Simulated scan of single mutants.
Amino acid sequence: MRDETQADFLSWRRQSFPAKAGLTMAKFRVVDLRPGSDEREHEVTARSPKEAAEQVIGEKTVRGQRGTNDLLCRVYWQETRDTMNMVRLFRPAGKK
């Protein structure tokens, strides 16, 4: 019984976090929110939302800085047909 439970968990983990499980990379939609950017939406293949954003933006990003106007992009990805995930990524503090 324990082996079945562990197998189910590992199967779920591989589906939910393919890059962390060492499997194929996932597709992400990066919405570039920088002023003056020519192309707003990009679809890229990466191991994580942060890596996808850094491919498009070309600079380091961080998650969740409160009270800042340094929002660089939003990254969307879909783990299952019924769920859509989104993360906001910002310019690190002290960088302009």
Rank of each mutant, 00 (worst) to 15 (best):
68 T>M: 11
53 A>V: 06
66 R>A: 15
60 K>P: 07
79 E>V: 02
17 F>G: 00
46 A>E: 00
68 T>N: 12
74 R>Y: 08
19 A>R: 01
57 I>P: 04
72 L>N: 03
88 R>K: 12
37 S>K: 11
79 E>F: 03
23 L>V: 03
87 V>T: 08
19 A>L: 02
90 F>N: 11
41 E>R: 03
49 P>D: 03
46 A>W: 00
37 S>A: 15
28 F>D: 00
53 A>N: 05
31 V>Y: 04
96 K>D: 14
47 R>N: 14
36 G>L: 10
30 V>Q: 06
34 R>L: 04
19 A>I: 02
52 A>R: 00
20 K>M: 07
62 V>T: 12
96 K>N: 13
76 Y>W: 08
60 K>S: 15
78 Q>L: 07
92 P>F: 13
20 K>C: 06
21 A>M: 01
12 W>V: 08
23 L>D: 07
96 K>Y: 09
30 V>Y: 04
10 L>E: 12
74 R>C: 12
49 P>K: 00
18 P>S: 04
14 R>N: 04
94 G>F: 07
61 T>L: 09
36 G>A: 10
6 Q>R: 08
55 Q>T: 15
36 G>P: 06
75 V>S: 03
37 S>N: 14
50 K>R: 13
43 E>H: 11
80 T>N: 09
92 P>C: 14
52 A>I: 00
78 Q>W: 04
72 L>C: 06
90 F>E: 12
24 T>R: 14
81 R>N: 15
22 G>L: 03
71 L>F: 06
21 A>Y: 01
1 M>S: 11
95 K>D: 14
15 Q>E: 11
88 R>V: 10
